[in-house]
Write a protein that binds this DNA or RNA. Structure first.
Length: 222
DNA sequence: CACCAGGCAAGTA
DNA sequence: TACTTGCATGGT
């Protein structure tokens, strides 16, 4: 079975089993970007509390509201999302990027993908996964997002060595799937869902929701 | 109690 | 390039 066929089949099974995930959770592109920073190494449920705090304080949007907020106050509001001092600085840097673009998302995204990616990576607190998440989920660019779940799952399926780098894993998907933002969106969300809800619990076989042709015959591992 | 969650930057070798 | 460490809350 070719890599193309395997990736297509896994996607089909995940979609059939779990259904569309409707990512990214959030009301706007800017809110998505804030969430992308807040969720770094932290559960989404924690992020939701932080976002609720920002909203009820009226500082989530537009970006100028967040820029005006004193760093200590911002840190206090996002406390449930963990690493609150570091993340406050990160959000400030992100809001600064918005300011440089006239607080106009469309204007910020008015750039070719490679240039935009470099620009995002230049922001404090924005690494490859966060940059690609913004490109895919906020700017609708066909860029495949790699995260810890994806890496683990690909390793278990034998499609990539456990030591594969971010760019290697990303190429594996993007070299074998059509450049379709909607497909990448759903695929990554489904992999995260699988990783969160199934992979690290009971052995995937025979209880694996993917059933008879489970792509993890050796079990979840660690 | 230990361990982990949709990373990242900075420092070291 | 390829490690290591600090950052911190909340759930299991």
């Amino acid at each position: 079975m070719s890599v193309v066929d395997t990736l297509q089949e896994v996607y089909g099974r995940l979609l059939a089993r779990f259904g569309p995930q409707h990512w990214w959770p959030g009301d706007s592109g800017w809110e998505m970007m804030v969430g992308a920073v807040l969720t770094q190494a932290v559960r989404w449920s924690n992020v939701e509390r932080a976002i609720a705090n920002l909203k009820s304080s009226g500082v989530l949007s537009p970006p100028p509201a967040l820029r005006r907020l004193p760093p200590e106050e911002l840190a206090r509001l996002i406390r449930p999302a963990g690493y609150y001092n570091v993340k406050a600085r990160k959000l400030k840097a992100l809001a600064q990027l918005m300011g440089d673009a006239g607080d106009d998302l469309a204007r910020l995204f008015n750039e070719y993908t490679d240039g935009l990616r470099r620009r995002l990576l230049g922001v404090y607190g924005v690494g490859e996964e966060t940059a690609d998440s913004i490109l895919l989920y906020a700017a609708s660019r066909p860029v495949f997002v790699i995260d810890a779940y994806t890496s683990r799952i690909m390793g278990r399926m034998g499609l990539a060595p456990p030591t594969a780098s971010y760019s290697e894993l990303q190429r594996l998907f993007m070299d074998h799937l059509p450049p379709d933002a909607a497909l990448y969106n759903e695929y990554h969300a489904l992999l995260v869902h699988l990783g969160k809800n199934t992979c690290r619990k009971t052995p995937l076989c025979p209880t694996c929701p993917l059933n008879t042709t489970c792509p993890f015959p050796e079990g979840p591992g660690r």
